[in-house]
Design a protein around this nucleic acid. Structure first.
Lengths: 225, 225
DNA sequence: TTTCCATCTTAACATTAAGTTTACACAAAT
DNA sequence: ATTTGTGTAAACTTAATGTTAAGATGGAAA
């Protein structure tokens, strides 16, 4: 995998955590840098322009949330991914963290494997969503122009419909659980009713007029031709 | 949901700790097994193939770190999660532990609550990426695409049928007791009638059209070609 | 602002498939 | 011959999804 060259900045006031996390991410081939408080995090972020910043919420000088919103206000860090480390209890800051534009959060105590796999997942997601036009059979899906074409005929989908179709089509054949769909298309914190996904699936099927989404009962949906 | 049926092996030379920890994890619905030194830990791990192994670092016969690296060198334990119990001071073994591939640490003295919540967290997150395609002879079972193929021909199974087949096929040749099947596929708390498994087995046999599930009368079923 | 429009969500109900039980047949072991 | 365990088919129950239409929302145009 091309994790190489990806820079990650980790800010935490506990040396143990810095050590464990940087060791594990380093092992995966990332360039890892550390900071031990909020101010240092901002400073180093400006120097390094990392691809990903992992912020402890509770830090001296500035909290992770503060750091996040300061960085996000600058255009340079508009696209930078941010993960929060939070204490399990700290429910309120989860919400705040997400509001200030974090991409993910991981609850302490941290499992290195879990963190690494989340980081990998984030990069994986980002790498793909670079706006590649998907082409599966006679269907093409262009996330930049926001257009779906079947045999050259343009089909117009609404935002959610498009995102859902794009998700499924990004890994043809793979079954996506309803949970996965919810967290990817709607977001982890959003709670919507049981039938919402179905209805969107139905509309997609209807608009496309092609039977390319298969239901796997009790499991989820998959895209295949 | 399915913390049930998850097997945990705990190795520690202090009976008190074994008792407290297994009591607390047992209460959560895990199947808990114990070992009182390094050698016994390895032996039981091979018997049980647990989902998680909790190792005391300081043990007679073999240390937790030694046990870990021995197990990790075998493919069977490549994916098994491992947690170390360490004395707080023991900084050096942290590093060593990480090198041998542990997933988490808990420092002594242990708070049962903390340990339980870490274990739960591990299982919660890990549950996501446990999808490996099994290939036995001309049969392949892909839990990501939710597809079974025989000589390249796709066979569609329902959820329970698939889970049951996947379980049996995960250890070809091994006999699964009806109890085991029930707790792994259905969950420990679910109570279903006597013939339920048979009927599912029958449907699988029927759909596959290949005789790959063998009845071991009075014992259970096994997958073999 | 108000109105309009498309999108998104929800609720209620219909439909289908999955899963379970029942009842009995059969086979092997005692 | 009786007991025990499993196979089979059909009836039955439950769970999951499909469908439709009716609000809710929010942005754009009048």
């Amino acid at each position: 995998m091309e994790t190489k060259g990806k820079r990650i900045l980790i800010a935490d006031d506990e040396p143990d955590i810095l050590e464990i996390v940087s060791y594990n991410l380093g092992k995966e081939g990332y360039e890892v840098y550390t900071a031990k408080d909020g101010n240092e995090a901002i400073e180093r972020a400006k120097q390094l322009n990392p691809d990903l910043i992992i912020l402890d919420v509770m830090m001296p000088k500035k909290t992770g949330v503060e750091v996040c919103s300061i960085l996000r206000s600058q255009s340079l860090f508009q696209e930078t991914m941010i993960i929060f480390l939070t204490a399990l209890s700290d429910e309120a800051s989860h919400i705040k963290g997400l509001e200030t534009g974090a991409d993910d959060y991981v609850s302490k105590p941290i499992s290195p494997k879990v963190l690494v796999s989340r980081v990998n997942a984030l990069f994986r997601r980002i790498n793909k969503d670079d706006g590649k036009t998907l082409k599966i059979g006679n269907i093409s899906i262009d996330p930049v122009k926001f257009i779906v074409e079947i045999d050259g005929n343009e089909v117009i989908l609404a935002k959610k419909e498009f995102e859902l179709l794009y998700l499924l089509a990004s890994k043809p054949g793979r079954v996506f659980l309803r949970n996965e769909i919810l967290s990817q298309v709607w977001g982890m914190d959003v709670i919507v009713g049981d039938r919402t996904i179905d209805v969107h699936i139905r509309k997609i099927r209807q608009k496309l007029g092609v039977d390319c989404i298969t239901t796997v009962k009790g499991v989820g949906y998959k895209f295949e031709i």
